[in-house]
Structures are given as C-alpha cells and as structure tokens.
Simulated assay, not measured.
Amino acid sequence: MSQDNQQAELQTIVNAIRTLAENCQGNNIALLSLLRQLEGLHQEIRDGLFQASLPDNRQALYTLLKDIESQGGWPYIERMRLQALFVNVEAAHNNHKGDETIINVATTPELHNGEATVIRD
C-alpha cells in the first residue's frame, strides 16, 4: 500500500473515531470505553508490530529517530490525573451538599496507588 493510500485510510479511521466520540458526547461511560479501546490498541501496536519492525542497524535507527524528531515526537496517550478529575467531582459535591456519596482521594501516590475510594451509605 502506498504512503498516500495509508494516509487516506488513516484519515478515514480518525474521522470515524471522531464521529463516534461526538455521538457519545455527554455519555462519560461510552467515552471512557472509547479511550480504553484506543489505549489498548496503542499498546497492542507498540508492543507487537512496532517493536518487531524496529531497525537492526545504526543507519536505519538514525533515520527513525530523525523522523520521530521531525514529525512531532513519540506518540503518547496521556491519562487524566485523578486529582484533575476530582476537581469536577468536588465542584459537583459542593453544589449537591445533600448527597450521600463521600469521595476520598488519596493525596499521595503511595496511598491507594492514587485511586479514589467511593463510599456509599
């Protein structure tokens, strides 16, 4: 497959994912599922096909590194930090003081591995 055909096919996939995400707007569970699928696909490609295709000589490695540098760096899927996520939860909690849900977020990574604890009475 030519480079132009690959780019056109990739753009079609990107457009389909963008449309799916827009159709899920307001449905945080569906959007989270989409993000998990994308993260899983990223890991699958990186750990399988990409690693298997890594260069085996210095010249090819130099070419790859040059391409990575010139084309925007290493692809990375950033995870939302729980502290940032819970800023919204705290604001919502302040707006709904009568709710029975208590959210306890560990303030250090050592506690609960940075995970949230949700307690329902």
Rank of each mutant, 00 (worst) to 15 (best):
V14F: 13
A106K: 02
C24A: 02
A52M: 07
Q83L: 10
V14D: 03
R120G: 02
V105M: 06
T19P: 01
N95E: 15
L65Q: 11
S70W: 10
Q83W: 08
V87L: 11
N15I: 03
V105G: 00
G98N: 15
L111W: 02
A92D: 15
A116S: 11
A60R: 07
A116Q: 03
L65G: 00
Q6T: 10
G40L: 10
G40N: 10
K97L: 15
L20Y: 00
I68G: 04
T107V: 06
H93E: 14
I45E: 02
D121Q: 13
S33Q: 10
I102T: 15
L41K: 06
L85H: 12
V87W: 06
S53G: 07
N95L: 15
G72H: 03
A106Q: 05
H96S: 07
E22F: 06
P109L: 10
L41A: 09
V87S: 06
S33N: 12
K97W: 05
D99E: 14
D121H: 13
S70P: 03
T63W: 00
L65D: 03
R18I: 04
Y62W: 02
E22C: 01
G48D: 10
L49D: 11
A52H: 07
A116W: 01
N113R: 13
E115Q: 04
N57T: 01
A52Y: 07
S70M: 08
Q59W: 04
L54P: 05
S2D: 13
R79I: 00
Y76V: 15
S2P: 11
E39Q: 12
E90N: 12
R120Y: 13
T107G: 14
C24L: 02
A21P: 00
A60H: 08
D56T: 12
T63D: 09
A91L: 15
E69A: 13
R18M: 04
D67M: 03
D121E: 11
N88A: 12
E115K: 11
N28S: 11
Y62Q: 05
L85Q: 13
